[in-house]
Design a protein around this nucleic acid. Structure first.
Lengths: 190, 190
DNA sequence: CTGCATGCTAAGCAAGCGCTTAGCGCAGTT
DNA sequence: AACTGCGCTAAGCGCTTGCTTAGCATGCAG
């Protein structure tokens, strides 16, 4: 039986609130009441409202990086590897669209120090995709003029989905991820 | 010689502030000081902070719709038409990235009434793209399994660029738009 | 039964918020 | 010179914000 600590309940409440209303429009009282606690309880378990965002954002970035690096290591064949990377990246954003929205859209609300720390993970995500595309071009599997631009475009498919995707909606995250993977393959095909 | 009214200066200041910090994190005092006026001046020329957002957002949505509908009417040939639509849509977002950021990311901050009004324009943008793809499929120019999903994906290229694009940065909006147009053609090619 | 640490809350503070009110300064008219 | 209307501001109101402080209830050790 898993123990859900008060700290974790507050984090889960913060994820819901930040994803729904944005960081700036969320009050600490809102977070506390979603967690079924008094406003002061937030500060028993967390340093500040921004540190709640930092915790959620850092954890989300780590997961996203893990997902795409894992997919990058899943195959040596450029096309199959790209398919796996895009599918799992988009799938993660669909399955975790609330965290994804915070990761992507509340990045600027982090303190400068925390933003710098998270920026390192963001650059690694982008670099992982660029490396996969470059390798595919060198091995003749891809025909790409602008590797950085294409890397951004391919990642955009997954990232932009958190703007409108609703879990439990009409769209299945799995089908959407498959579509994105096929589109990415078509974009890069030699 | 163009006359820049106080009302317009306040709108321009609001665009800068909303794009930089988000609607909720922007204060009316910030908008006023960017326009070189006192805090009360905002309310001489506009009803509320939300009505500033509404004005900017509605105008931005109208422009974006105009751009994509214009491109859709520019050619009858499916591939050339898609190229024109994606190029001009992405180009508009690059050239107007601050307004574009407000259009795309502050949509939820509108009042329910204003959001509903703007939603009509959003749906027309999406429908214009779906129509162009459907027509291309029917005429054998495109091979697309999931037209709505592909329409979203193609529009995502332009939309997601406002998240990171900086005017005057290393990337040229024109080149980026050309890249997106070519990627869209590859995504849909029969 | 007492003492004490733990986990939470009631109450509230200083600061900042959106917005209002009352009125000033300065054109243009007579 | 006196008047009038317009464009703007000084001042501040009522409220909410993030966060703090002091203290209460509960459970466990002795």
């Amino acid at each position: 039986m898993t123990v859900v600590t008060a700290r974790e309940r507050l984090l889960a409440a913060a994820v819901e609130a930040f994803a729904e209303k944005g960081f700036a429009a969320t009050t600490t009282r809102d977070i506390a009441s979603r967690a079924g606690m008094s406003p002061a309880a937030v500060y028993v378990h967390h340093d500040s409202k921004e540190s709640l965002l930092y915790t959620v954002s850092l954890d989300g970035h780590r997961h996203a990086l893990e997902i795409i690096e894992g997919a990058a290591a899943s195959s040596d064949e450029p096309v199959e590897r790209l398919r796996a990377m895009v599918r799992s990246f988009s799938r993660w954003h669909a399955d975790n669209s609330r965290v994804g929205r915070i990761v992507q859209y509340e990045y600027h609300a982090l303190s400068p120090e925390h933003r710098a720390e998270v920026a390192v993970l963001r650059r690694r995500i982008e670099q992982t995709m660029r490396d996969a595309l470059t390798d595919g071009v060198e091995r003749g599997a891809f025909a790409i003029d602008d590797v950085p631009g294409t890397a951004f475009a391919v990642l955009s498919l997954g990232i932009d989905l958190v703007r409108w995707f609703e879990p439990g909606g009409s769209q299945s995250g799995e089908r959407l991820a498959d579509l994105h993977a096929e589109l990415a393959v078509k974009m890069t095909r030699a």
